Simulated scan of single mutants.
Amino acid sequence: MADSEHSKFVEISHLIKAYPNPFGDDIRVVDDFNLNIRKGEFISLIGHSGCGKSTVLTMLAGLNDISDGGIIVGNREISGPGPDRAVVFQAPCLMPWLTAFGNVMLGVKNCYPKESKAVRKQIVEHSLSVVGLADSMHKYPKELSGGMQQRVGIARAIALKPSVLLLDEPFGRLDSLTRMELQDVVLDILAKEKLTALIVTHDVDEAIFMADRCVMMSNGPKAGVGEIMEIDFPRPRDRAEVFADPDFFRYREHLLAFLEQRSPFKGATRVHNRTNLMGYLNKAELEDVFPRPEKAIA
């Protein structure tokens, strides 16, 4: 599916994130990152650790300053955080002294200050019901499992009625079964609410199963879009059918090959092995690996 002028809901253009370097030029973590996202599309962003995936997401969320370039969401250039972009982080970050209901209500109060208490209560209850917590909304975080706490985080995000849902490794701390359950919860919500979404993930199967397009990032520093892969499975998606489809393995093989070719540890085996064998090196060889510091001047 090619981009068109009418389908660009999120436009990320020549995005740069640089940090000051007291010893020379600024360090560019993300450099010339370009991506257009269609309305209602689900994008997965994948790459090696440290390549800047979460940096791109937090700039899109307005939580991280943009060094250069720009981001347009719904024909408006962003300049900071806003309720049109909700984030679900890896850790749910719940207030321990508030119930699940109270945690979701925090954002709802700020987002809908002019609404009546009854309307705000209805929004919170609906959001918690959608993620399967209708019977647990008055429990405190300590009374909830890790998966249930993350459901509260998802409910808190969708309660703001955002146009873009940003997911920063939201299932990374969960066991496999809970992870799959919450993947289905998110996909159901996106289908019903017709939200645009971007997920940062290290999980290859998750990146393929959930997304319409998989954006593979090059290694940092100066990371950008390395390749974009279209995922053509129809929606709604049945997990068993997708995982049995020959195309799934084709997508998986291509994605793994991309990551393997750009592995930051590729070619480092010889050095790694030598340092592991330092107990077997003689004194001269050991000093060659770890040079002796000059003696301090008395």
Rank of each mutant, 00 (worst) to 15 (best):
G172E: 13
Q183N: 08
V225M: 10
N219L: 14
L166G: 03
M216H: 05
R235M: 01
D184E: 15
D205T: 10
P162S: 03
P236A: 09
L166F: 11
Q183E: 12
K222M: 14
A211H: 05
M217G: 00
P170A: 04
R179K: 15
M210E: 02
K222W: 11
I231Y: 05
A155R: 00
A223F: 11
K192M: 10
N219W: 08
P234Y: 07
M229L: 15
A155K: 00
P162I: 01
A159V: 00
A157R: 02
K194L: 13
L198T: 07
A191I: 11
A211V: 04
V204H: 10
K161W: 08
A211M: 09
I228V: 12
N219G: 11
I154C: 02
R239N: 05
R179V: 12
R173G: 13
A159F: 00
I189S: 07
T178F: 10
A157S: 13
K194F: 11
V204C: 10
E193S: 06
L190Q: 15
A207G: 04
V186Y: 08
L198K: 04
P236V: 09
K192F: 10
F209W: 10
L177I: 15
K161Q: 14
V164W: 07
A157I: 06
D238S: 11
G224Q: 01
K222H: 14
L198D: 04
M216F: 12
L174P: 06
I154K: 00
A211K: 02
I154D: 00
P234K: 02
S176Y: 13
G172N: 13
E230C: 03
E193I: 02
